[in-house]
Write a protein that binds this DNA or RNA. Structure first.
Ligand code: MN
Ligand code: MN
Ligand code: MN
Ligand code: MN
Lengths: 220, 220
DNA sequence: TTTATAATTTAGATATATCTAAATTTAAAT
DNA sequence: ATTTAAATTTAGATATATCTAAATTATAAA
């Protein structure tokens, strides 16, 4: 069994996430941006991850994650999301406080720990941001979801996830009263700036700029 | 605020534990043994910890932990023991499975996490091995405890902790039916080899070699 | 097709954390 | 008071993970 350092796991996770956003090949700069490290540091890491065969690395042409790499990344993502559920469900963290802590907890090495945590949490399928939790084999069943901006006028749906998980964005959603699970209806669409007005749980109405709405993911 | 790496925290914890066993001054070799690293590595770390003023380091003469260092060590010990309680109480780990995992979890940096964990666990005062959990200011109220070997014939008491926390020893105690909280009475003391026979909860009798009994700590 | 720009890699530096082997110091024995 | 042995430190090496500055490569523009 090859061993991976926390840094290697984090880079691999980043590469997986970027791949998952549609890009087949991931560039050094993409990773550099995501990881907040310099491109030079990324190049060095890519060489090492390539040697460990979790990515295919062609100098100057970017990387593709291998099947082996995907599995590993999904294990780390699984741990990250389970810990996020734990922090919110058991330790009363708010959804904007969990990410940094989960980024540390995800590297703790113990298979038993994660099995038991999963069981203790009741085998949750989604994390506090609505993202699916891979099973122990790395299988993820993503539910179909689309940005709120794609909904037609008068369409109804349910908020199921957020695209941006930054504390700032999440706190803003809290403030206006948007949350995962909320039943919504598009009350108005402003052509001019793409902003929308939605009703939440048939109770209150919320105005959202296009930027905000684009980061709110819904299910019909 | 000076920052400390996981390795620095671990060394400091080791130095604290060795100091706590009576030694005022801790030697390089003592630390090397405890940390399972070479004396050369220890010397290097001591230089760094000395610069950060958590220990007083006089070359060739060993180290003394400072007040600042003691505080820091106790914070790490607090985290370690709270996580051990979590693993046993919530995740059904056995007491011989928790130490290595807690050794990783103790380095996760989040004040809120530990506050909430403490609260979630109901502010436990002792870990699964009977060791006291320092409060958030580093105060420990150690209960008086003595090795089972010190008990007189026919004396009664209660098992409150173990001195050796190795998996092998803990599993052995499980096997013979000794546990923290057990009410015991010394039924026989063998002069020849120092072994003892004790009754547990007035139900069953256990034979213990001197070596085992010396690592079982009791309260009268 | 040449040239310029942007992306990327390499080289060399710093910091942490470990090791082995050699040098040094302290403490014990003669 | 020497000598020796044990403990400790230093020197030099390796591995990880980062950086800045310089060199290289690929791609877009002219
Ligand atoms: Mn997250
Ligand atoms: Mn999440
Ligand atoms: Mn422990
Ligand atoms: Mn313990």
């Amino acid at each position: 069994m090859i061993k991976f350092t926390p840094a290697e796991e984090s880079y691999l996770k980043a590469i997986y996430h970027i791949s998952d956003e549609g890009k087949r090949t991931v560039s050094t700069n993409d990773i550099s941006f995501q990881m907040k490290t310099k491109p030079a540091s990324v190049s060095d890491m890519l060489r090492r991850l390539g040697e460990k065969e979790v990515i295919e690395y062609r100098k100057y042409y970017g990387v593709n994650i291998t099947e082996e790499g995907k599995k590993l990344a999904l294990q780390t993502i699984r741990k990250h999301r389970l810990w996020e559920v734990f922090l919110v469900e058991k330790l009363r963290f708010s959804w904007d406080e969990v990410h940094e802590v989960a980024d540390e907890l995800e590297h703790v090495k113990s298979k038993l720990l994660i099995q038991r945590l999963d069981e203790y949490l009741g085998f949750p399928k989604f994390d506090p941001h609505g993202d699916p939790i891979p099973d122990e084999y790395g299988d993820v069943r993503a539910r179909p979801r689309l940005p709120l901006t794609d909904l037609e006028l008068h369409a109804t749906g349910q908020i199921v996830a957020v695209k941006d998980s930054s504390a700032a964005f999440l706190k803003y959603l809290d403030k206006v009263g948007a949350y995962i699970g909320a039943r919504i209806r598009v009350m108005e669409k402003v052509e001019f700036d793409g902003s929308v007005e939605i009703s939440v749980d048939n109770k209150k109405n919320i105005f959202m700029s296009k930027d905000v709405a684009a980061n709110v993911l819904v299910m019909l």
